[in-house]
Amino acid sequence: MLRLTDVRKGFPVRSTGEELWAVDGVSFEVERGEILGIVGESGCGKSTTAKLIVRLEDATSGSIHLDGNELVGVPDRDLGWLRRTAQLVFQDPYASLNPRLRVGAAIAEVLRVHERTRKGQEERDRVNELLGLVGLSADFAGRYPHELSGGQRQRVGIARALAVEPELLVLDEPLSALDVSVQAEIVNLLKRLRTELGLTYVFISHDLGMVRHLCDRIAVMYLGQIVEIGPWSQVADAALHPYTQALHTAVPIPDPELEAGRDARPVPGELPDPANPPPGCRFHTRCPLAEDVCRRDDPPLVRLGTDHDVACHVVAREHGVRTDGSTDPDGPSQPSDPSDRAEHP
């Protein structure tokens, strides 16, 4: 349903005049009805990826196909179909609603713009139905955002996105501004909505626990690139890339007995400046496995398990897969060419 192919997005850096590649050669696919989770730390490009999919930003190069339609480089006025197909749910429920509009008016406006209902009773009924869908009673229509709690606002944000009857919801850190108990409510709601409405999600988060809980597949990003992508059980419970493993160790498990048995030594070093990423593998400056080849060559994503791709020279070799795309560990060694980033077939 959604396919990104070698998508790059650069932002000019004012001080140096160079380009900051926030997203640097990202490819993945999302099937209809699937939930893809994207995790990573700040500067990894996950939020930019979200913005590219809903075309708040236009990719510099590469292609993004949604339902077979290209959206890179297409002028805004020709994107009406996209607005009815893909919607975004924002991180901060306090900023994503216009403080001057009552909840009902905000949702009705979307219905009107997209001519989803006739004005009057039909519109009011639909607003109430949408509120009901996200677990809010009809009297919320008359309230202003400042009268709502964070969780209630996030529900309104979801209802407003659903008003266009989209097929794809891009959720950009929808939980991170909420308290633990409210997060649980919203996650349960998202699970229910997917089943009831047959939605597809791209779920952006820094919380591996929640991503593991909700998603069918997980992509891990580091400095603008995907370092590991695969089924949730693989990436969450049997991660292969050293960065994914570091991320797992970094996040404390809410269980003292499990924590007691863990080796929670942190990976050293700071996140490198995305405007000036290290050469070769971007994680090599902090990686416990780094070798010479990692400092020189950018590892491509190679398939190491069922639908499970990892971008790491060392891990690939341990699995008998070479990072230039062939699968013969005994063949003659060739330096892999970063410009020829062999994507999995």
Binding site: D92, S96, V113
Partner: peptide, 16 residues
């Protein structure tokens, strides 16, 4: 601000 960005994603016209 997010709600202006949201308005763009929701397909509202520039005039609106």
């Amino acid at each position: 601000v997010d709600y202006i960005q949201a308005a763009r994603v929701l397909g509202f016209s520039r005039t609106r």
